[in-house]
Amino acid sequence: MLLRVHHKTTYRYSAPVTESHNEVRLHPLTDEDQTRLEFQLTLSPPARVFSYEQPGGIVSHFNIHVPHTELVILAESLVQTYRHDPFERLNWVEDDWGFYAREDIRQRYAEYLAPTRAVPFHPELERIAQLTRRQAGVSAASFLYTLTRLLHRLLEYKPGATHVHTTLEQFLENPRGVCQDFAHLMLAVCRREGIPARYVCGYLYGGYETLEIRGQQASHAWIECLMPGERWCGFDPTNSLLVNDYYVKAFVGRDYSDVTPTRGVYRGPAHHELTVEVDVKDAEREADRR
């Protein structure tokens, strides 16, 4: 699909901010699943933008030294996505777990197997894994798909129930949250099972009709797991979906802290108000309409 993404972040301050330093991770990736055709970052107040590549994506950064009470970061991009049929090439029948025991694989993807602060190894994970195994078939893909659906059933999607600093322990105690919490929990289960898994931050196209898809209003998060054959495959526990060409990836990392879309520090009042608007459109359809 050809998707046009419009992502606007606005910070409002109660008093003028005199100095502000920011890093953003908003460039859509170019990889086997998608190609970034256009990208534009517009800032208000205007600032010179610098960019470089990190493992996981492109980082842009800028600073503002003129007093301002509002900072607007507008990222617009045009992306071609390819994964039309996510079920394609997935193995559902053979036991392929031997792949994950290979020492070369364990070393090559070591960072995606280790716990992190946001993805700790909690005893509860074992129970979730057992439950999944009971329902799943013999293949890794079957396990992961079952896990995706199981988490979707077990957890309640409730925006506002958690915030960016909620820990996995807190979430397990009170399993209500948003895509970030779903993704962290699924990462933890996968890594404990020895499946390399990474956090993905990006966008989700909601379709022409108003489908009940979660994560359209803001940037979305899901995970990618390394499948036998050494390719990444996306799972979205929040929507109980395999990731297809409706998804646009912006950045991948070990957990949320590697991929934070916008972060920064400023000198000014203690509080600010943040609003985020995300809009993903089918660009071909848009063009037809015109």
Partner: peptide, 24 residues
């Protein structure tokens, strides 16, 4: 050094003071 199997890669990339951001 990791690819050649001299030091296991997991020890490096999961070391507390390894800075992934600085890769490259």
């Amino acid at each position: 050094i990791c690819r050649d199997g001299v030091i296991p890669r997991e020890l490096v990339v999961n070391a507390a003071h390894y800075r992934r951001e600085f890769q490259g």
